[in-house]
C-alpha cells in the first residue's frame, strides 16, 4: 500500500508539473513554432484569460463557461493585436521581442491602473481526495485532463480541419499558399489568435488556484519558454514530449532537493538540450525519422 501510495504521489506530481508546462507553453508554441514570433506578452494573455474568467464567475457564470469566455476574449485581443501591430514584424522576429515586451508593460500597468492592484479569487472547486497518507486536490486532476484534452483538440485542429491544413501550408511556404488562393493574412491572424486563446485558456484554468494580480503572468513565462525551446518548433513532436521530460526532471528534483533545485534544474536542462539538439526535440525526432 505504501509503495502504491508513493507511486501515485509521484505520478500526481509529475502530472501536475506536466499540466502546468503544457498549458502554459502551448499558446507560446503555436505563436513561436508556427509564426516565429517571440511573444514576451504571453504572460499578459494568460493574465487576460484569468481576469475574464474570474469576473465571469463572479457574475454568476459556471466555471467551465467562464474559462472558455476567458480563452475567447484573450483570443480576440490577440487577433486585434496581430492586425494592428504584430503583422509588421513577420520579417523581423528579433524586433518582435522588443515590441511584445512593450505590449506586456502596457498591459500589466494598464491593468493595475484600471482594475487595481489585486482581484479577489473565486476559490478552487471540487474539494479533495485522499490516497494513503496524502490529501490531493481534485481540481489538479482536472487540470491534467485539460492539458491532455488541449493537446488532443489542437491535434484535431491542425490535422483534421481546413484551417489547420491551410495554416500549416501558409507557415511552411507562404507565397505558394498565397498563389493557390489562401487568404494568408487571415490565416496569420487566426493562428496568432489561437495562440493567444490558448494562453487565455491557461489563465482561466489556473485562475481559481492562484493570486490574481497584474503581474501574475510572469509566473508562467519562464517555464513556457523553457518548454517551447526544449521542444522546438512542432507542438506535437516537440512541446508535448518536452513537457513530459521536463515534468519528470522538475518533479524529481523538487521532491529530492527542494523547489530551488527544481527551478534551476529546469533551466540547466534547457542549456544542455540545446547544446545537444540545437533544433529541440522536434529536430531530433524529425532527423530520426528521415
Amino acid at each position: 500500500m505504501d509503495v502504491l501510495s508513493g507511486l501515485f504521489s509521484f505520478l500526481y506530481q509529475t502530472g501536475d508539473a506536466f499540466a502546468f508546462l503544457v498549458l502554459s507553453a502551448c499558446g507560446l508554441a503555436v505563436i513561436f513554432g508556427m509564426m516565429g514570433i517571440i511573444n514576451l506578452a504571453h504572460g499578459e494573455f494568460i493574465l487576460c484569460g484569468a481576469y475574464v474568467t474570474t469576473s465571469a464567475v463572479q457574475m454568476g457564470l459556471p466555471l467551465p463557461i467562464a474559462i472558455l469566455a476567458g480563452a475567447l476574449v484573450a483570443g480576440l485581443v490577440g487577433m486585434l493585436l496581430e492586425r494592428t501591430i504584430i503583422r509588421h514584424l513577420y520579417s523581423r522576429p528579433l524586433d518582435s521581442i522588443v515590441v511584445t515586451w512593450g505590449i506586456s508593460m502596457i498591459a500589466t500597468q494598464g491593468t493595475l491602473i484600471l482594475l487595481g492592484s489585486t482581484m479577489p479569487g473565486t476559490g478552487t472547486p471540487f474539494g479533495s481526495f485522499t490516497v494513503g497518507d496524502y490529501g490531493y486536490s481534485v481540481y489538479r486532476l482536472v487540470l491534467m485532463l485539460a492539458a491532455v484534452a488541449t493537446l488532443a483538440v489542437l491535434w484535431l485542429i491542425f490535422t483534421r480541419t481546413r484551417f489547420g491544413i491551410l495554416a500549416r501550408a501558409t507557415i511552411q511556404v507562404p507565397h505558394i499558399a498565397e498563389a493557390l488562393g489562401v487568404n494568408t493574412s487571415l490565416i496569420y491572424s487566426l493562428t496568432f489568435g489561437l495562440g493567444a486563446a490558448l494562453a487565455g485558456l491557461c489563465g482561466g484554468l489556473y485562475a481559481p488556484t492562484m493570486t490574481l494580480v497584474p503581474t501574475m503572468g510572469a509566473a508562467f513565462v519562464v517555464e513556457a519558454f523553457v518548454t517551447v525551446v526544449v521542444g522546438g518548433a512542432d507542438i506535437f513532436l516537440g512541446t508535448a514530449p518536452a513537457a513530459a521530460i521536463l515534468a519528470v526532471v522538475k518533479a524529481g528534483l523538487t521532491s529530492w532537493q527542494g523547489q530551488l533545485a527544481g527551478q534551476i534544474g529546469l533551466l540547466v536542462a534547457v542549456i544542455v538540450v540545446i547544446r545537444i539538439l540545437p533544433r529541440g526535440l522536434t529536430g531530433f525526432i524529425l532527423r530520426e525519422r528521415a
Binding site: 501591430i85 509588421h88 514584424l89 524586433d95 522588443v98 515590441v99 515586451w101 512593450g102 505590449i103 506586456s104 508593460m105 502596457i106 500589466t108 500597468q109 494598464g110 493595475l112 491602473i113
Partner: peptide
C-alpha cells in the same frame, strides 16, 4: 506618475514599428 510604464511601452512599440 503611474502612467510612466504605459507611456514607455507605447513609445517602444511605436518606435520599433
Amino acid at each position: 506618475s503611474q502612467y510612466a510604464l504605459v507611456v514607455m511601452g507605447v513609445l517602444l512599440v511605436v518606435t520599433i514599428l
